[in-house]
Every structure is written in structure tokens, then in C-alpha cells.
């Protein structure tokens, strides 16, 4: 059976793959953000938010990615289970 993802992957030429990989690598290189620093940021952000809402830790995503112009951006997806009502 034809796997559409496999098919699309094969279609992407090596030059495009190179460019996309480079962009991702450079976002991390340029911001010079260590995994430890990211972890510390994550736990601080979480501590603040947890005061108000209950966060789904399984689905939590906080990472460095990039805007379309290549500038680094801190993106966070923080799913909320419940609002804390007190």
C-alpha cells in the first residue's frame, strides 16, 4: 500500500532537505540555549502557570523554534486540564 508520507518524503529533493535541516540547526546555534537552561525556564514558567491552572504535563511542549524570517522564537503549547477556582 502506498504510504503518502513516504511518497512525499521521497519527493523532497536533497537540496530542500539540506536547507530545512540547516534552518533548524541554526536556530539552536544562534540562540546558544543549552538544554539545562531550557529546562530551568520550563520549570519556572510551569510554576507560575500552575498557580492558576492545572496543566497537562504529558502534552506540555516548550521549545525553541523559528519565525518564518529565521529569528528564534520560544514556543509553548500548554494544555490546560482545569482552571483552579480558589
Amino acid at each position: 500500500m502506498l504510504d503518502i508520507n513516504q511518497f512525499l518524503k521521497r519527493k523532497a529533493p536533497a537540496g530542500t532537505i539540506a536547507k530545512d535541516r540547516l534552518k533548524l540547526v541554526l536556530v539552536h546555534d544562534r540562540i546558544n540555549c543549552s538544554p539545562e537552561l531550557l529546562e530551568m525556564m520550563k520549570s519556572d514558567i510551569l510554576a507560575v502557570i500552575s498557580k492558576y491552572v492545572e496543566v497537562d504535563l504529558e502534552e506540555l511542549r516548550i521549545e525553541v523554534s523559528s519565525f518564518t524570517d529565521g529569528d528564534p522564537m520560544l514556543s509553548a503549547n500548554i494544555p490546560i486540564r482545569n482552571l483552579k477556582k480558589d
Binding site: 529533493p13 536533497a14 537540496g15 530542500t16 539540506a18 536547507k19 540547516l22 534552518k23 541554526l26 529565521g70
Partner: peptide, 17 residues
Amino acid sequence: NMVKKGDMMAMDDVVEI
């Protein structure tokens, strides 16, 4: 010849990055 086939990054790609 490789750039034309898409197998190598084009000059524009490198300049953009």
C-alpha cells in the same frame, strides 16, 4: 547540474540563510 536537479542547495538558499 546538481542545483538544477534540486540535489544541492541553490545560491539563493545559502544567501537567505
